[in-house]
């Protein structure tokens, strides 16, 4: 081993020590605790065997899938619009759309309360229209809006970059062969964006699966996995269930990201 290699290993040591002490060891502890409950080993599968947890899992999966699809759909429309049109104020619009990039989940929850809460803007508008006060912040719909709010800026950043990279000649070639607007979108643009859509969609999905701050702010009554883990751990002090559910949740989010990463290059989530 030459001296530069030796230095490289030395410089890698602090990282290794930190990850070992504060990630791998705690992970082992979680695995152990999950199996130490009154149900023993059966606890590992509690997410699939307890009807209440199964329902929560399905609700969380449905919510996350819905959020992902909605965010991607909005993202594609907006990214294509911004890439194809140049107009005064465009830069400002881009800034407005991407600035909330790192608003934490709690703050996003508050944004949804201002929008759709008991004194929210939407409720005010529907009331003045004589439709009654529309309040949906403290429900699944509110959580849905919150996760879309959270993921839209990052999805947009990724998709706008991907749209810029698309070769305009591809669309022109398809049109020269007789393809109409819809066929160009279906056969050229969406396949061209597929890697970006997969990567950013996976992050949006994983984020929605594990996000806690927004749900915490909106209500403790919404049954999503993160809230269940939280209540099992802090209120019920049911450590083994909390650990088993955490492991299941971690496996799902990591699995989704790992499965798509090889296909789509790398991308990182920033759950708040």
């Amino acid at each position: 081993m030459n001296s530069a290699d030796r230095l490289a290993w030395i410089l890698l040591l602090p990282l290794g020590a930190f990850v070992l002490a504060f990630f791998l060891l705690p992970l082992v502890r979680v695995v152990a605790v999950a199996g130490e409950g009154p149900n023993g080993m059966a606890e590992y599968l509690v997410i699939l065997t307890n009807p209440r947890h199964v329902a929560t899992l399905l609700a969380t999966l449905t919510l996350s899938a819905g959020v992902t699809l909605a965010t991607l759909a909005i993202g594609v429309v907006v990214a294509l619009f911004l890439a194809r049109n140049r107009f005064p104020g465009r830069a400002l619009l881009v800034s407005m759309l991407t600035l909330p990039l790192a608003f934490p989940g709690v703050v996003v929850g508050f944004m949804i309360i201002l929008l759709a809460g008991r004194q929210g803007l939407i409720g005010g508008i529907t009331q003045s229209l004589g439709l009654g006060k529309l309040v949906f912040a403290y429900s699944m719909a509110g959580l849905f809006a919150g996760y879309v709010y959270f993921s839209l800026p990052r999805v947009l950043v990724t998709l706008m970059a991907a749209v810029e990279k698309l070769d305009p000649a591809l669309s022109e070639a398809a049109r020269s062969l007789g393809a109409g607007r819809f066929a160009v979108l279906r056969d050229v643009i969406l396949p061209g964006l597929a890697p970006a859509l997969t990567a950013t969609g996976a992050i949006a999905f994983a984020t929605a699966m594990g996000a806690f701050g927004t749900a915490f702010t909106l209500a403790t009554r919404i049954d999503v996995l993160a809230m269940t883990i939280y209540t099992e751990f802090t209120l019920a002090a049911n450590f083994s269930t909390a650990c088993a559910l955490s492991l299941a949740l971690g496996l799902i989010t990591w699995g989704v990201l790992a499965a798509t990463r090889n296909f789509a290059g790398s991308g990182v989530a920033a759950a708040g």
């Binding site: 990630f23 705690p26 979680v30 994983a206 699966m209 594990g210 996000a211 806690f212 993160a226 883990i229 939280y230 751990f233 909390a242 650990c243 955490s246 492991l247 949740l249 971690g250 989010t253 990591w254 990201l257 790992a258 989530a269 759950a271």
Partner: peptide, 9 residues
């Protein structure tokens, strides 16, 4: 990739 809640736990 793993939710913060689980890491904290």
């Amino acid at each position: 990739a793993i939710p913060g809640l689980a890491l904290a736990l």
